[in-house]
Structure formats: structure tokens, C-alpha cells
Design a protein around this nucleic acid. Structure first.
Length: 825
RNA sequence: GCGAAAGUGGCGGAACUGGUAGACGCGCAGGUCUCAGAAGCCUGUGGGUAACACCGUGAGGGUUCGAGUCCCUCCUUUCGCACCA
């Protein structure tokens, strides 16, 4: 072999040629035979990508190339989720404008993606920080505002002291900011929200039909948290309005021995005012409200409460029960008030035990736990047999609940209701680097929308970032000072910007018409290309991005902008790449902060992008997490060497290859079996087993060359098939070899080979012979051998004979082409 | 605590529907080439045995001619949920 495989040169050469020829550019005005492949667009961070990041892009690129070779017009765009706090924090630290910082990162990241041989339709590139993009955030916001889907309210919200902004519920994990890890505080602020709760039922129902990982769907179901129950009104002596509680167990209403309000409940302060123990109650309210979310929701946290001294009347019996304030009642779920049924609810029971409140089992509900007798003994007041003749006989469970709701509604003291855990999406952020919310505060007209013709509301430039505290937007008098579009008087501009998840909730639609300045989306193209056929990204977006995108897509449908409800038909979550951390001795997620990353740059310099791609795909099933190993990479490198060497030898015999390949030879059969294996494996994303099949095929070709039995035409055909099947995995080397084997560029436009099922099956098979279920011999037989022949062969086999001699074969189980089990006594 | 997924050689993993357990790769051992090494290349590689037998898919039971795969009990790990009334 003359020349060695020089990846550095090949990588550069083919990356240039692909780009120059625009091989990945798709005209989205034409929709026929389209396939929309999408990787979640990345945040352009300041640090270099590591090999753990590469996994989902390499997988996406392999899927893209595979679909293209199947003859589809595949749209595979890339863009940038370019707004966000890291850029602004960098600006505050160094003074560089967030835009400059972000654009610099985009440039570097793009080069890195190119270096991996990833092929995107860059003519569709977009960045969410571009006014041409974010003006449509503002436009959509105004449409939502018109319909009451965007609104402002004062509410207790999550405040992250580290990020100095409010957060959505979805961004708070275990009481901490999912970005910075700071404990989140609760503050009363006036903020902008999107009314996602109006869509709770549709978001839940839509999950059914999606081809998504079950665990993602489960997470979304849990987050939406639907529960059926009833709202029940309790009259309170001191108040004009009754207090409404939400319960999923209206069947236990007769067992309610108290009601409890969240300290934030509007009625709480009014009740305190009337109480002789006012000071104590107000102190309690103040104390609970000051607690952070972390403290308040801490596991095993003591349930605490205070008696308002006021009574409420059980609507079914008219019996007075005390009204308490309790820290475990959440202000923003249900009605912010509960009925306490200690006999049938663990939390209520703990609370009752602590404060000596009665526990009253509802006896007529059969099979309820805990055991009423035991509880009666455990509490001072004792249980009282109580129930209702109306509800008697109803089995505990849905039927009892249904009847209870009917009884409550009949009496006019409540109604059936569905509760959701989902809260409205808080989209305000007190930061600069985001989409300005298009609203103006006028002292006489109130909060007024910016007229459409004044869009986009641009971010101001006269802002000093270095060392800035608070929201940098507030610094710009030119931005803030404006006139009211309604009355023309002086007014102040809204300085909150939008959560960056607004940007990412519709970008997949914008890739279809990224330069269109007349409309947000192109309904015709959306009809042709949406939903995204295959979406690939990390599990960390299981709730946040994926729920918001499903919501916004539905809003856009209701606004008549598109005709679809679900943006992503199929979702794939790649597993993380882990690596042994020498510092801790543990296998951990690969990350910069842990210091266990591997840079693709050095690997590419040494082995080329294809080796990195082969190893990344070979490391394990892509949906599982996989451990990176330095030595493993060399296996991928050696494989590509052997492919290169084999094809170089084939190239040398090519001039002698005339005519068609032989119809049926061992290599020919190997070729067809490999096509079948690789096709099936690639289509379930299992490139690791596809690579294993290709390794075996390469060895078969090398052996055929060594032995010289196969005709040149047959060998050339095999080698061409090898590089074609390997192309989605190792595009640069295969492109080069393809050309040298007589193919015309580009492989992306070459047809994926098809297999003949007859040839893909071996002619002779190994028949396993078992005696009483234990393997005793392996026979090489013709495919399709008859049972009688197989038994005869087995009985005559010298390895089998000792096990059956002198015994009677009572039964023979024969699985053609696989196994013969002789059962002897 | 509740729910889901997983547990296979020294390591990553394969076996998709019950039918040859360990494909493929790493590592390791021996060989080849070389003055020597590196890189290649070839051979071997679950435990066990002289060779068989035998033992082997987290543990224990079960179903079956036959179980990594199905059922039951338990252990471990990972992930999700967890005052949501």
C-alpha cells in the first residue's frame, strides 16, 4: 500500500467541498418527500465543546445522512439559543457587550461543529438575539396579550438572588435555581405570565399520541399533575364570603374536623384583624412568608399552624369546625385552602395530632386506611361515628367520590372540579440580554401595548455592563423614557425581558422561513414540513423547553398561524457521556466543572473527525449513558485504517473488474447480510452494532483479497457497499474512498443499498443439538433441513451418541435452522 | 415513601420475538516485523480441567423440552415524583 490514511487533509478537503456544493441546502418552499431532522439548538457558551457534547450532534448528523441516502429531502438546520444570563454575566465581569461575546462564541462553536463533519443547512441559520428574530417574540406576546394569554399580576414568585431575577416554577429544582444552585426566595412582585394553565388539559391529552420516550411523557404528566375532585364552600361566621377549599376526597367531607388556609390566603389577614390573638397570628404569617421555598418545602419539615379562633360550618352538617392557618398549605395550588380530614389524610393527621384536633373516620367508607380504631386511641378527642345515609353503600374509590360530588352539588355547597399542579408560566426576567417585553407604563392609561408598527423594541446600546447591579436596562434613559402610544403623554417603558424559553418555544417553525420579514411563520411551509420528524436532544429539557414548545405551538394554532398542535412527532434523548474522574475516583458526567472532559480538538488533530465519530457512536447504545475510554478511541482508529487499506487494495484491482458481481458467493452473501444488519441497526439508532457488523464485513473483504477467490467485480461491489453503509458514521474517509472506487461525489446523493432477503440468509447453518436441554454438539447443515434428517444426523454424531446410548428418546423438539433438543429418559 | 428503568467476562457492550450466552471493541498473553522500541499485522482470551465433565447473565424460588429473556420474592444502582390536599 502506497499512501497512508491522512485524516487531517481529507477532513478539510471534504468539508470544503460539501459546503461549496451546498449539499445540505433544502428549499423549504417545496415540501414533497420532506423529512425534518432537528437537534435542539445550543446555547453558544464561551467554553469549547467536549466529546460529551458531541454525541447528540454526531448522532443527529448520522441520522440526517442516513435519511438523505434513503432518498428524502432532509431539512437539517442549525441555529443559536443566543440570549441568556451567561453572556450578560460575562459582560458584567469584563465589560464586553453581550452581543459581541455571544457572536464570538457562535463563530467558534460553528467552526467546532464543522470540524466534526456535521452538515447543516446553514442558509437557515438563525440566532434568537437577532432583532429580526426577537421582534416576532414581541409580536406573539402582543397577540397573546390581546387574548388574555399574556397578563400581569402581583403574586408570590421565585426570586434567585444569584441571578438577580425571578424564575419560572419549572426552573426551580428542589427549592434551588436550576442554573446557579442558589436557594430561591419567595417575593411578592408584579410580573408577566403566560396562561399555560388554560392549556393544561390539551397538553396532557396530546401526550398520548406522541412517539416520545415514556419517561419524558411521564415527567410531563406529573408536572401537569391533573387531579379530579371538588371545590367545597365553607361558610365562616366572620366573613361575608365563604372559604372555598379544593379536595380530591370529597367523599371524606363528613370527616373534616378543621379547615386550614395558606398564610398568604387573602382571608388570612382579615381573620387576624378580628382575632383577640391578632399579634400572634400576624407574626406567624410573617414568619412563614419569609421562609425560602427550600425551607418551606423541606422534607420532614414540621407542620405548623395557628388557630384563628374563628369557626367555619361544615356545609353538609352545619357543624362548626375551627379555621387554622398552616404552613403546609400552598398558596398557589387549588384555592389555597384545605379541609382537614385527619382520619383519611396523612398530612392532616400529623397536623391534628400536633394540635390536638379531633380525628373522625368516615366509617361508611369501606377499606379505608389507617385503621380507625387505632387512630381513635392515638388522639385525645376520639373518633365519632359519622356518615351520611345518602352516600351509604358506595364503594370506597371513584364511585364514592362521584356520588359525593353529586351530593355536594345538589346541596349547592360546592362543585366538581379538576385541579392541576401546573402554574402559569412566569416569563419576566429582570435582565438585559433577552427580548424586551413590548409594554409601556403610562401614568394615565396604565399598562399599554407597544403598537405593532413600532416593533421591534430594540435593546438599547447606551448601557455600561461592567460591575452593573440590578437590571442594566434600567440604566438607559433613552430606552426607558418614551411616550404613551395611547395618550401621547410621557411614559416609561417596561424593562423586564422575556425568559429565553420563549425564544426556543417556536424556533423550529422559523427555520422554514428565517429571513421572512413579513410574517412570523409561513403557514404553507409549516403544513408541508411540520411536525419535526425527528427531534434529538438532552433529557434535561424533558419538562422546560418541551412543555413550553408544545404550549406555544398550540397558542399559535389558536391564533391561526399554523395548523398543528404538536411540534415534535418523535423525540430521542441521548444518554450522557461519563468518564472516570481522577480527582474523585468516580465515574461522573463529563463536565468542565468536574474537570473530567476530553477535548475533541486534540483527538481530531491526531486521528481525524471520523475516528471521533466512530468511537462516539460505537461507545454504546445512544439512549444510555456511556463511559469514555481513551484506549477505546484507538480501536476506532485501527478500524478506519483497515477500511482504508482494504479499499486501497480494491482500488488496485478495479481495472480488472469487468461485468457484474457474481450472483451468489460467500462474499456476496456477506454483503447482503451486512446491508440488512446495518440498515436495521441504523434505523433504531443502534450505530454501535451497525459498526460491529461493518467491522466484520471489512474483515471478510480483506480475507477475500488475501485468498483471491472472489472475482474483482464482486470485491469492488463489496467495498463500495462498505463505504456507502459507513458513510453516515465516517463521512470524510468514505467520501474519499467512494471516489477512488469509481463513485461520483457526493455519497450523500448515492442510494442506500438494498438487500436481497434470500442472499442475506446463510446457505448452511449451525444446528445446535441438545440432549435434555444441554448443548452436546453443533452440526453444520443445509438450511431448511427436515426434522427426520436432523434427528438421524444427530443420533449418528459421535459427540451426541454417549448421551443417548441405551436411552429412549421420548421427545424431540426441533426448531428448523436453529436447534434440535432430544429428550431422553 | 411512590413510580420507572437497569444489573451479563478484567472493562465498554451484544444476544430485538424464550432456542449456540459473551458478537464487536478495549485490555491482557504469545508470536511476527525491528539493532531495539513505537505503530502495524497474526493467534489466543468467561471460570474450571491434562482433556472431558462441570460451573456460569445481582440472590433465591417457579413455569418450560429449553430462561440473560417470562412469573413471584428479595438485594443493589440510576432516574423521576414526593407536603399538590
Amino acid at each position: 500500500m502506497a499512501e497512508r490514511y491522512d485524516p487531517a487533509e481529507l477532513d478539510r478537503k471534504w468539508q470544503r467541498l460539501w459546503e461549496k456544493a451546498g449539499t445540505a441546502v433544502v428549499d423549504t418552499a417545496r415540501g414533497e418527500n420532506g423529512f425534518y431532522m432537528l437537534n435542539m439548538f445550543p446555547y453558544p457558551s464561551g467554553s469549547r465543546l467536549h466529546v460529551g457534547h458531541g454525541r447528540n450532534y454526531i448522532l443527529g448528523d448520522a441520522l440526517f445522512r442516513r435519511q438523505r441516502m434513503a432518498g428524502r429531502r432532509v431539512l437539517n438546520p442549525m441555529g443559536w439559543d443566543a440570549f441568556g444570563l451567561p453572556a450578560e454575566n460575562a459582560a458584567i465581569a469584563s465589560g464586553v457587550h453581550p452581543r459581541e461575546y455571544t457572536l464570538g462564541n457562535i463563530g467558534r462553536m460553528k467552526e467546532q461543529l464543522r470540524g466534526l463533519g456535521l452538515l447543516y443547512d446553514w442558509s437557515k441559520e438563525l440566532a434568537s438575539c437577532d432583532p429580526a428574530y426577537y421582534r416576532w417574540n414581541q409580536w406573539l406576546f402582543l397577540r397573546m396579550w390581546e387574548r388574555g394569554l399574556a397578563y400581569r399580576k402581583t403574586a408570590p414568585v421565585n426570586w434567585c438572588p444569584g441571578c438577580r431575577t425571578v424564575l419560572a416554577n419549572e426552573q426551580v429544582v428542589d427549592g434551588r435555581c436550576e442554573r446557579s444552585g442558589d436557594a430561591v426566595e419567595i417575593r411578592d412582585l408584579t410580573q408577566w405570565f403566560f396562561r399555560i394553565t388554560d392549556y393544561a388539559e390539551r397538553l396532557l391529552a396530546g401526550l398520548e399520541a406522541l412517539d416520545w420516550p415514556e419517561r419524558v411523557k411521564t415527567m410531563q404528566r406529573n408536572w401537569i399533575g391533573r387531579s379530579e375532585g371538588a371545590e367545597v364552600f365553607f361558610r365562616v361566621e366572620a366573613l361575608a364570603e365563604p372559604i372555598s377549599v379544593f379536595t380530591t376526597r370529597p367523599d371524606t367531607l363528613f370527616g373534616a374536623t378543621f379547615i386550614a388556609l395558606a398564610p398568604e390566603h387573602p382571608a388570612a389577614a382579615r381573620l387576624a384583624e378580628r382575632s383577640p390573638r391578632r399579634a400572634g397570628i400576624e407574626a406567624f404569617i410573617e414568619r412563614v412568608r419569609r421562609e425560602s421555598r427550600l425551607e418551606r418545602e423541606a422534607e420532614g419539615g414540621e407542620k405548623e399552624g395557628v388557630d384563628t379562633g374563628v369557626s367555619a360550618l361544615n356545609p353538609m352538617t352545619g357543624e362548626p369546625i375551627p379555621v387554622w392557618l398552616a404552613n403546609f398549605v400552598l398558596p398557589d395550588y387549588g384555592t389555597g385552602a384545605i379541609m382537614g380530614v385527619p382520619a383519611h389524610d396523612q398530612r392532616d393527621f400529623e397536623f391534628a395530632r400536633r394540635y390536638g384536633l379531633p380525628v373522625r373516620p368516615v366509617y361508611r367508607i369501606a377499606g379505608e386506611d389507617p385503621d380507625p380504631a387505632a387512630m381513635t386511641a392515638a388522639v385525645p378527642h376520639g373518633g365519632v361515628l359519622f356518615g351520611s345515609a345518602d352516600w351509604d353503600g358506595a364503594e370506597n374509590g371513584p364511585e364514592a367520590i362521584r356520588r359525593a360530588i353529586a351530593g355536594i352539588e345538589e346541596k349547592g355547597v360546592g362543585r366538581g372540579r379538576v385541579g392541576y399542579r401546573l402554574r402559569d408560566w412566569l416569563i419576566s426576567r429582570q435582565r438585559y440580554w433577552g427580548t424586551p417585553i413590548p409594554a409601556i407604563h403610562c401614568p394615565s392609561c396604565g399598562v399599554v401595548p407597544v403598537p405593532d408598527e413600532d416593533l421591534p423594541v430594540l435593546l438599547p446600546e447606551d448601557v455600561a455592563f461592567q460591575g452593573a447591579e440590578g437590571n442594566p436596562l434600567e440604566q438607559s434613559e433613552a430606552f426607558v423614557a418614551t411616550t404613551c402610544p395611547r395618550c401621547g403623554g410621557p411614559a416609561r417603558r417596561e424593562t423586564d425581558t422575556m425568559d429565553t424559553f420563549v425564544d426556543s418555544s417556536w424556533y423550529y417553525l422559523r427555520f422554514l422561513n428565517p429571513q421572512d420579514d413579513r410574517q412570523m411563520v409561513d403557514a404553507g411551509r409549516a403544513a408541508a414540513w411540520m411536525p419535526v420528524n425527528q427531534y434529538v436532544g438532552g433529557i434535561e429539557h424533558a419538562i422546560l423547553h418541551l412543555l413550553y414548545a408544545r404550549f406555544v405551538c398550540r397558542v399559535m394554532k389558536d391564533l391561526g398561524l399554523v395548523a398543528l398542535e404538536e411540534p415534535f412527532a418523535r423525540l430521542f434523548n441521548q444518554g450522557m457521556i461519563t468518564r472516570l474522574n481522577p480527582a474523585t475516583g468516580k465515574v461522573e458526567k463529563m463536565s468542565k466543572s468536574r474537570g473530567n472532559t476530553v477535548s475533541p480538538d486534540e483527538l481530531i488533530a491526531r486521528f481525524g473527525a471520523d475516528t471521533l465519530r466512530v468511537y462516539t457512536l460505537f461507545i454504546g447504545p445512544p439512549e444510555k449513558e456511556s463511559e469514555w475510554s481513551e484506549e477505546g478511541v484507538s480501536g476506532a482508529w485501527r478500524f478506519l485504517q483497515r477500511v482504508h487499506d482494504a479499499c486501497t487494495r480494491v482500488e488496485a484491482i478495479r481495472p480488472g473488474a469487468s461485468g457484474e458481481p457474481d450472483a451468489d458467493t460467500p462474499l456476496r452473501r456477506f454483503e447482503h447480510r451486512t446491508i440488512q444488519r446495518v440498515t436495521e441497526d441504523a434505523d433504531r439508532f443502534h450505530f454501535h452494532t451497525a459498526i460491529a457488523a461493518l467491522m466484520e464485513f471489512q474483515r471478510a473483504i480483506t480475507e477475500a483479497l488475501d485468498e483471491g477467490i472472489e472475482t474483482p467485480a464482486t470485491v469492488v461491489s463489496a467495498a463500495q457497499t462498505l463505504v456507502t453503509l459507513l458513510h453516515p458514521i465516517a463521512p470524510h474517509l468514505t467520501e474519499e474512498l467512494w471516489e477512488r472506487l469509481g463513485g461520483r461525489p457526493f455519497l450523500l446523493d448515492a442510494a442506500w443499498p438494498s438487500f436481497d432477503p434470500e442472499l442475506a440468509t446463510p446457505e448452511r447453518v449451525t444446528l445446535v443439538v441438545q440432549v435434555n436441554g444441554k448443548v452436546r454438539a453443533r452440526l453444520d447443515v443445509e438450511r431448511g433441513a427436515a426434522e427426520g434428517d436432523a434427528v438421524a444426523l444427530a443420533r449418528a454424531d459421535e459427540k451426541v451418541r454417549p448421551w443417548i446410548d441405551g436411552k429412549e428418546i421420548s421427545r424431540a423438539v426441533y426448531v428448523p435452522d436453529r436447534l434440535l433438543n432430544l429428550v431422553v429418559r
